[in-house]
Each structure stands twice: as C-alpha cells, then as structure tokens.
Design a protein around this nucleic acid. Structure first.
Length: 178
DNA sequence: CCTATTTGACCCAC
DNA sequence: GTGGGTCAAATAGG
C-alpha cells in the first residue's frame, strides 16, 4: 500500500501527460553535443522500426528545483559516415543554470565516430544548435504569439525565485559566470 | 564514501 | 498485448 504510493499517485499522471507541440522541439546533430545543461540519464528503450535505441535524459535539478526539462537522444537509422542524432527536448529549463555554463560544443567531439567527416558541414550544423534550448523554445513560442509562462500554463514559472544559498550548497560552484 | 549510469521491471495509452 | 516512457535497485566510477 505504501509502496504503491509511487505509482498509484497522480503525480505519475502528470509525468505521463501528453506534451503539446509547443512544449517540444527537436533538432538533429552529428553527435551528442553539450547544450550547457546538466542531464542525467534515466533510461533507454529500443524503438520499433528503429535501428538504434532511444536514450532518455532529465535535468539534474529536478529534485532540487523542480526543473522538468527532459531530452531524448536517438541515433537515426540512416547513418552514413557522419551519424546523425535526433535530439528531442521537452519543456524548457526552470532551473537557475540557464545560460550560465556556455556550451563548448566541439570539445568532446570524437574523431573516431565520424572518421574523416568532422568537417565544415558538421561545425555548421552545430553552430545552429549553439542556441540554448530555452532560447529555442522562446523563439518558437514568440512565433506562436505565446510566452514561456503561457507555454507551461501553470504556477511553475510564477514560483521562480530559488534560494541561491541552497543551490550553492550542493554544487560547489560550477555556477559561475565569466 | 558519494554520486552518476546501467538495467530490468513497471506503468500507461493505444 | 504491444510499444513507449519512467522508476529504482544494482552497478560503476571518482
């Protein structure tokens, strides 16, 4: 009974709710780039009719700040020499780490993955993706005539002020702006 | 030791 | 029942 608390809860239904189109967006990369957020993997799944499994990530600060941002990464079936990854984001970050750590995109680019093909088209594509997920969401939202608070539509955004001391207590200072 | 990932079980919608 | 998304115990790594 007490253990069923986890699954019987309606909290689960909130997580399982279908996301509207405006809350999700997807991009394609030639390799899993660093978008400047801290992600924690929580699962992977073999997708039907797909050659490669789908990996599920969530924001590290879900417990501490209630940041509901998630992303999934899946390598596309049609891979030549440069393998393509489809990255799908859900819900912009509400944690305080937005735009703090800037993405060093090419830093961890494995040469072995793409062999010779880590050339101009690769970096060009990645520069497109240099934009942060939140900014990307905001742009799409403005296109629709909405704003982030309307996207989430709840009190999530209204209760933004997080306690900075609490935040620094757990993470010894990767929160630093140059 | 503590934190992050792996991994099978589990849940829900169809 | 199947397929896709999530949880949490075990495991790996600093």
């Amino acid at each position: 009974d007490s253990q069923r608390d986890i699954y019987g809860n309606d909290k689960m239904k909130r997580l399982k709710r279908s996301w509207s189109k405006q809350e999700t967006w997807s991009i394609a990369t030639t390799f899993p780039y660093d978008d400047g957020h801290r992600w924690r993997k929580y699962g992977h799944k073999i997708i039907k009719n797909a050659k490669y499994p789908k990996h599920y990530y969530r924001c590290v600060f879900r417990d501490k700040q209630g940041c509901l941002a998630k992303k999934t990464v899946q390598q596309e079936d049609s891979h030549g020499d440069p393998p393509r990854f489809n990255v799908e984001y859900r819900a912009p970050h509400t944690c305080k780490t937005i735009n703090v750590v800037f993405p060093s995109v090419m830093e961890s680019a494995p040469m072995e993955a793409s062999g010779h093909a880590s050339g101009s088209s690769c970096s060009l594509k990645l520069q497109e993706n240099h934009i942060s997920p939140l900014a990307h969401a905001a742009i799409e939202a403005q296109d629709e005539g909405l704003w982030i608070s309307e996207l989430l539509g709840s009190d999530m955004v209204a209760t933004e002020p997080w306690d900075l001391d609490m935040f620094l207590e757990d993470d010894d200072g990767w929160y630093n702006v140059p």
